[in-house]
Design a protein around this nucleic acid. Sequence first.
DNA 1: AAACTATATCGCGATTTGGTAATATGTCAA
DNA 2: TTGACATATTACCAAATCGCGATATAGTTT
Lengths: 119, 119
Amino acid sequence: MKTDDMAKQRKPGMSDAQITEAARHFTILSEPARLKILRALMAGPQTVTELVAVTGLKQGNVSKHLGVLYGARFVNREKEGNFARYSIADADLFTLCELMCTRIDRDVKNLAASLKARR
Amino acid sequence: MKTDDMAKQRKPGMSDAQITEAARHFTILSEPARLKILRALMAGPQTVTELVAVTGLKQGNVSKHLGVLYGARFVNREKEGNFARYSIADADLFTLCELMCTRIDRDVKNLAASLKARR
DNA sequence: AAACTATATCGCGATTTGGTAATATGTCAA
DNA sequence: TTGACATATTACCAAATCGCGATATAGTTT
């Protein structure tokens, strides 16, 4: 098959399987509680107890959320004696969150501007 | 206040309000059906009927999802007579999805590699 | 006006998931 | 071993939401 033929019938960038996986991962970032945990971890590695103190969430809750985050490799787990120290797994998380936040900020500004122009 | 003092007690990058909003927006990207619609739109603007044909979803369903996407300004709406033509609102969507997909691919490779090394 | 088409919305059943309390597992220290 | 502590797991309830069918709204055509 020639390259321009490929360009014409070029398949969508994501397969159905990739879409399913992407959706699953976005789901994990769709919980305020988990984002709060991630925000705390962005200041550096933390134990569960520390995260409970910082976030105000209950222990079982934090543990469950960390399990979810760990299952998707968003965080690393490091057992130290009696404790478990969690940390952000990769820098993509920062990028994802920053991108989403700047998007939101931009929309807010656009909305405010259009409201102002409408009078 | 000096800059290094600011570094020490530097506040988390996202406020609670920003976290809530970010979570809400991630939620919108957490549905396979919505991602399928977005994937279709990445090939160019489409009417609801066209999206129904491409995605295989029911009309009411597509309309509802488009409403959600439009509410978060992920897509634009353009009424043309009897039709409504939707389009991707900004390029950040591509970046977000690509970033997530490359993250997933990388994890899969890492997992495969560690499995291989473990025998 | 009536019929047709495209899109949006409503109500419902079913599934999923977060928070909580209680409990289990595992580790260290005396 | 026993007790104390950190973490993980379980069972349960409540809230959110997806898909579906039916219907409502709005624009176009005859």
